[in-house]
Design a protein around this nucleic acid. Structure first.
Lengths: 344, 344
DNA sequence: CTGAAAGCGCTTACAG
DNA sequence: CTGAAAGCGCTTACAG
């Protein structure tokens, strides 16, 4: 039986009923007598009929597909977020499709922003925000405002507190404050912070927490211990390398808090090149708890940001239609890369 | 202007033309006089009108959406494949959406396989195949045969040579033969192979190449050097641990070829626990060249399998409609984890 | 160059 | 419980 072309008309004809009736048994709506239901189901099975979600969407105005925008999928974290979202969406009969970051940031000669997004008539959009320069942030907000007219939006990740959308965001300042506190508890006084952006004005940004942590511990703030960089391993390596190179060894930090595990990996590399033993000479704290964290040397102590959970929760929030702003969950994962400052 | 509801009718009314004309300027088909074209474009801009891809698909029978099925996205490799595919698809005005592995393998109480896939009226499907037990392989083939009636399919990854679909597959036996050869060149004679499946009958499977490599070097095949496992770091750790525990140290291998970098990471962990120094006591060769390979200790020598390229090529092959079977590209990336057998 | 009309595959009031 | 009909937002022959 050539099933690739069956439509609801074929089924109706086969079962000797109208297409309305077929539709009813398909959706389990309205009422259908047991006998005709049986006939229709038999016809469906015989034709191996699969109703077109496209045509259904045409009528119902729903596509059952959600859009997701991530800075990049190459960072394994984003893959986790996507997986979490995708799985949750499947449970709710939705699909999630990924759109490129540039479709909302719109650089140079990009296509009109958002047009693909809107064409596809998505039921909603999840945008993961992170590390934006002021101009990027401006353009993003413009695009979001436009998109908002067409579909509900949920923001996740490191979302500045002045963005006004349903959001699930990491309490970054808290995380960093506690990170400092953890290292202080291990006896560290020279604690560096590598990564993050200096330009954003959000009060929840990472270095606000870093500064708060230092203050809380009555530690002085040393400008050369705070270096900004983006989130790759190369960035991290260059950043720590630069810091170590410009400082007399006596002033080298004994601990560094890295923006994320990628940066932490780069820091390890830089430390190694400068002859530092880890963790004795230098403790390193990462963030994200990448799958490879346990396999680094030393095994990386990190902050698990439960990315899969974040993705799943984003879908739930989006589908709920609520306007809430919530905090994402996180927790320390203690391994071997952070030890007492007096371990050496 | 409330643009969220504009349809082609609104534009037509606004411009004082028929919807057919609007459609023509939208698609650049047929011919339209410059003036009416201008009028229509003005109306489109004023309404900020975005034609519905859904409705367009309704007529054209195309969804411009491709499906992709990966064993799991959590392995960063798969994220690379997906990214490569997604980027290439975007260039060709297509979207790619991810479907869960179980939708084609159909385990226990799963929904009827393929039904979501077919409902969505995909323009094509890319399936990444890997490490299948015979039963899984059987079920997969059944599902593929069914799906094939509805949409073109391309297979990628480690595809048994007896699968009869357009395919881009790694020449695994070749890769492994050359891996052995590389280690032999470094003076190794006790070379272990960890990973892969023993059940598949494909002649391109990894251990065929491993055996061929040994033979070529006139090295004996030692059964205890070949241990099967799945592809996670835990699997790799358990596998090498088991091997080392069951062998007298004098018989320990001096080099191990790991199924992939995850397994290699696990092997490193196991080696460390058994007091082996790397690379002096044990060389390790990975496969996939994960982003973290350079940051392991020692930096992992690996086989780069160019996953992003694979994803992009899969899209091209799928959209070309050709029935070819091609080999995926790969290359050695030499770092520090493989050294001369006499280095100690 | 342009419009009226049919059709894509469904769903959903509205009658009966 | 069931069917005829309108409608979802487009595209594409077919006339003119």
């Amino acid at each position: 039986m050539n099933n690739s072309g069956s439509t609801i008309y074929d089924i109706a004809a086969e079962a000797g009923v109208s297409i309305a009736t077929v539709s009813r048994v398909l959706r389990g709506s309205g009422s259908v007598s047991p006998e005709t239901k049986k006939k229709v189901e038999a016809a469906i099975a015989r034709h191996n009929y699969h109703p077109s979600a496209i045509a259904q969407g045409m009528t119902s105005k729903k596509t059952y597909t959600l859009g997701m925008i991530l800075p990049k999928l190459l960072n394994p974290n984003y893959a986790m977020i996507f997986t979490g979202a995708n799985d949750e969406a499947r449970r709710r009969e939705h699909l999630v499709t990924l759109f490129p970051w540039r479709s909302i940031i719109r650089e140079d000669g990009d296509a009109p922003p958002a047009s693909t997004l809107v064409n596809r008539r998505l039921d909603g959009l999840i945008v993961c925000v992170e590390y934006l320069s002021p101009e990027q942030s401006g353009r993003l907000q413009t695009t979001l405002k436009e998109l908002r007219q067409y579909m509900p939006i949920v923001l996740i990740g490191c979302v500045p507190s002045y963005y006004n959308y349903p959001t699930i965001s990491y309490p970054m300042a808290d995380m960093m404050r506690q990170a400092v506190s953890y290292l202080v508890g291990l006896g560290h006084e020279k604690i560096a912070f590598i990564g993050g952006t200096e330009e954003d004005q959000d009060e929840q940004r990472r270095d606000v927490g870093y500064l708060a942590g230092l203050k809380e511990a009555h530690l002085p703030y040393t400008a050369s211990y705070r270096v900004f960089c983006r989130g790759t391993a190369e960035d991290g390596e260059a950043a720590l390398d630069g810091m170590l190179s410009s400082l007399m060894p006596a002033y080298w930090p004994t601990a560094v808090i890295a923006l994320n595990d990628l940066v932490a990996m780069g820091c390890m590399e830089a430390a190694r090149k400068h002859g530092l033993r880890m963790p004795e000479d230098l403790s390193i704290l990462g963030c994200d708890n990448l799958f490879c964290a346990p396999y680094l040397s030393p095994a990386l102590t990190s902050i698990d940001t439960r990315q899969q959970e974040l993705g799943a929760n984003a879908v739930r929030l989006l589908l709920s239609g609520e306007e809430r702003r919530e905090n994402a969950a996180w927790e320390f994962v203690i391994r071997e890369s952070c030890v007492s400052a007096h371990a050496k």
